[in-house]
Amino acid sequence: MLDNITLGQYLPGNSFLHRMDPRAKILLTVVMIVAVFTANTWIGYAGLFLFIGGTALLSRINLKFIIKGVKPIFYIILLTFFINLFFNSGETVLVEWGVVRITKEGLVNATFMALRLLLLVFCTQLLTLTTSPIALTDGLERLLKPLSKIGFPSHELAMMMSIALRFIPTLMEETDKIMKAQMARGADFESGNLINRAKAMLPLLVPLFVSAFRRADELAMAMEARCYRGGDNRTRMKVLKFTKVDAIAAAAVLAMTAFAIIF
């Protein structure tokens, strides 16, 4: 039942995208998101869709995985669409029915908003599906490094993130196991009203927290045993390097952004 969460999952590979430097990927994803949110015409969105679709094909990831990422936020997209649709003060009225008033501008706006969210998910999916969590946090740490001069804990933040990412699958596995163990004891997680269902979570949550704390404790101990002392003067096994691939990608993304803003 936990199998179908793909958000934040990494699919190993050796494509153009996989070979890019994580810093470049993070920065270019941010640029793409800016482009997605500034685009304001059908041509702009068509271009963005083609560009992101093309990138997805280049990544050689099964498109199913990218589309599946929409699932968890599908209702948010739907809600955004309807809010924009109903609460918009446009001129050209299409339908008027009591308090409900749908205008042409509202419809266009709502569609753009939904498209933006959709493209936002696709962009971030492409980033996380082609970048291992370690590379991702590594890239983020390097990008935030300049901020540590003003006291921003960039290394600590990156370490926390990588630990959290590392333990997501473990915790999911554990949840699955404990859930099954309690179901074998007759626990029922699926039926009943909201209060009963919340109560039924107790046999799952207590063991989960106990084991998460135990794991945290063990990990802290293991890190200290290996003399972990924070990020100062730490060298890395894999030194990040920008290559030609990153330059090509940057050029393509910048051209796309210009296109989306101009049209």
Partner: peptide
């Protein structure tokens, strides 16, 4: 299950063992 002690959750031993029968 394997390592069944990880599924204990109640306040008291007796209550924990009663969980199954009550279900």
């Amino acid at each position: 299950f394997q390592y069944p002690e990880y599924q204990l959750f109640e306040e008291t031993i007796l209550k924990d063992v009663m969980f199954g029968p009550k279900n």
